[in-house]
């Protein structure tokens, strides 16, 4: 699934502890919901100032999902 690969790739570049990244996946019709879990010290890095990084992640993951005629949501679990 390229939307999942896209999320994994981006997050691996942003966090200090890539080994602590977990992605849980649920489906709701055409929508894939990704729960993103990172080390507590890395949460700020995937959210960014004013949530800007989180917004960018969601936009790009959605673009990847759209290629598969899917919608994708990314929830950052804290």
């Amino acid at each position: 699934m390229s939307s999942r690969a896209t999320l994994e790739f981006i997050v691996s570049y942003l966090v200090d502890q890539p080994d602590e990244v977990r992605i849980e996946e649920a489906e709701d019709g055409d929508t894939i919901i990704y729960d993103l879990i990172v080390h507590p010290d890395d949460i700020g890095k995937v959210i960014g100032r004013n949530g800007r990084t989180a917004r960018a992640i969601r936009t790009v993951v959605k673009a990847a999902a759209a290629r598969e005629d899917r919608n994708a949501l990314v929830e950052i679990v804290d």
Partner: peptide, 21 residues
């Protein structure tokens, strides 16, 4: 087309992430 997105929003998002990384 996919990389640019509506109103260039995907392009902006990729640029944000690239810059951050």
């Amino acid at each position: 087309g996919i990389l640019i997105g509506r109103h260039g929003r995907t392009l902006e998002a990729i640029q944000d992430l690239l810059r951050t990384a």
